[in-house]
Design a protein around this nucleic acid. Structure first.
Lengths: 207, 207
DNA sequence: GAAAGAAATGAATGGAAATTCAATTCTTGT
DNA sequence: ACAAGAATTGAATTTCCATTCATTTCTTTC
């Protein structure tokens, strides 16, 4: 009995684990899931390949956890916006715009998070995160209906529709190679307008 | 000179090619692109692996052609609906409902065609098909605006939004385990309602 | 029915990338 | 300083599949 895991070691271990997760984010943000190999991630984290497997059971698990972590952060941001003061309609608009703008600013990463081919574990994690986003939107839609600003509707389906419209609207532009920084604001504005109209509107002709 | 490719042989060859393409559809409809290996497809087509490579240069090419073929058929169907008699709004509703119903009836295949990660060649082919779908919707939206039934809007983005809302609305139910055959009509109706409202509406509070 | 050629076969090959593990380096407590 | 045990390393191994190709089977023509 001459070795014991001290707090310092524990801390370093945790730190290394975090560095690996962070490295996934960095690498995926540069080359996407397709180009993100375990060796590359290990290099980026400054550890050997084998070390990765000391902290995560498999590539799929590692990448899934990295996605969950990152998506979780985004959900926090959007949730914060959704909880701010004001009418539900305004908060919904802000939430959508925030989501869109952040995606546009890190297009490669956003594309990977939203739609890029990956391991089954990653796909599963993606579904979960997607639902978490939908829940935030669903809450806002329900609020809007309660406040009388939105017509009664299937809030769950509408939230899914919003996510779909949002991601689809982003994916086209995101798939382009060049940085379309100048149009970021405009794109975000248009997408927000469409999404907002989708839930907040009444038939055009009638009334 | 003792052999010549007769019409009969030519026909059989073509037939075999088609059977392989059809097999891709079948296999992908069961296990998606992820599970669709060349060996599996060959088996489903009743040919040897090597034969596949006599007809197609690579897996990616084969799968891309299969996707294009299948999507082309769907586009034809939706286009036919879009070209029928009547107001743009009604035609758009019909087109969306048709798309949704057909997707619901073959969920795994639909998901693969619409969104499942695959070889680069397949992704490229999908982009083309997706744009074709979007074009149909975009045309209908433009018609609706011209007819005064829809408010002026970015028809291109709106079309993308529709596709997104449609597919996202389908994916949730599609991810469930059981066959929700009984609810197919209801789901299609709800999705159609949401999509139609998204493009055909004016702000709820005003006016 | 035999020769010439084409098409089909499917086991073997190859390559790419995940995963392992024997050897090495680092930490701790005495 | 040293022994006991952990953590780390990265080259070697394994795995998974697309792709190939020597061999076999089928078609045609004479």
């Amino acid at each position: 009995m001459a070795y014991r895991r001290t707090d310092r070691v524990e801390e370093q271990l945790q730190d290394k684990r975090n560095r690996i997760l962070q490295a996934v984010r960095t690498v995926v943000g540069e080359v996407g899931f397709r180009g993100a190999q375990v060796v590359t991630v290990a290099e980026a984290a400054g550890v050997a390949t084998g070390t990765v497997y000391r902290h995560f059971p498999s590539k799929g698990d590692l990448f899934a956890e990295a996605l969950t972590l990152n998506a979780g952060h985004e959900i926090e941001v959007v949730t914060a916006v959704a909880r701010s003061e004001g009418a539900a309609m305004a908060r919904l608009a802000d939430a959508i715009r925030t989501f869109a703008l952040r995606a546009i600013r890190a297009p490669r990463l956003a594309w990977a998070m939203i739609a890029e081919p990956a391991e089954p574990e990653v796909d599963a994690a993606r579904l979960v995160s997607r639902r978490a986003f939908a829940d935030v939107f669903e809450g806002l839609i329900a609020d809007g209906i309660a406040e009388g600003d939105f017509p009664p509707q299937n809030a769950r389906l509408a939230a899914a529709g919003l996510i779909g419209a949002l991601t689809e609207g982003l994916i086209g532009p995101l798939a382009q190679d060049a940085d379309s920084q100048p149009d970021a604001e405009a794109l975000a504005r248009d997408i927000t307008a469409f999404c907002l109209q989708a839930v907040s509107a009444r038939p055009f002709k009638e009334s």
